[in-house]
Design a protein around this nucleic acid. Structure first.
Lengths: 115, 115
DNA sequence: AGTAAAGTTAAGTGATCACTTAAGTGACTT
DNA sequence: AAGTCACTTAAGTGATCACTTAACTTTACT
């Protein structure tokens, strides 16, 4: 769960494509087969496979095959890793803004005491 | 603040590169000049410029030039947009797991009542 | 005026992407 | 046994990436 650069690279790259985000949105409502995932998109099945491969190697998704159907499901941890990287940035950013606000407040008070 | 696909594409693509994530990490601690941002990386300045351009067109970052120094700072909203897309997926995913848990519980209770 | 600093533009290159069509491979159906 | 279904692999293509070196453009300093 550490800040593994290569895994974040792949996760964010996977998220950068609207087809793959669409698949993740579908999968966040439950597992689906390859052809179910393909339905909303006007691309060939091989293209779908390539998107799925990107999602799998990023760790955002996993799948098992039973008979001739492959069932794909979301993987909680990779999603959380990407999310928490962003949250960390926002928190640092907000902490800085708070310090800045303190600074502004202190200046304002100085000015007030000048009058 | 709506789910603008093109803007999410660019934001996540920008986040997929470790150099750009490094710059964002630096910027979450406060504004910096172009050459300050370049320091931690062993790449040419033009390469740095290109990363900055990616960050700017993604909306994650903005900058102004004063004299010969360009100062870059984080833009709160684009960061929040990417973060909230991920949060939404996780929430849906968790809601589904809760429903599944309810289902498992109900099954278990049925089994218990069988005994 | 002359030089250095900080950034910027242009052009080229090898690698990776997102797609396609064509040709399989197994697994259920009839 | 033959046909169909649900993928899967392979190979090729045009576009976009991440870099580089070389050549400027603006400020600022002496």
């Amino acid at each position: 769960m550490l800040n593994d650069s290569a895994s974040l690279n792949r996760a964010f790259a996977a998220l950068a494509d609207p087809v793959r985000r669409g698949m993740l949105a579908r999968l966040s409502r439950g597992p689906a087969s390859v052809s179910e995932l393909a339905v909303p998109f006007q691309i060939s099945l091989p293209a779908v496979m390539q998107h799925l491969k990107a999602l799998e190697t990023s760790g955002l998704v996993a799948s098992q095959k039973k008979g001739r159907v492959r069932t794909v499901h979301l993987e909680r941890d990779a999603l959380a890793e990407a999310e928490s990287w962003l949250t960390r940035r926002r928190e640092e950013w907000e902490a800085r803004l708070d310090r800045f606000e303190d600074y502004v407040t202190s200046i304002t008070q100085e000015n007030a005491s000048d009058r």
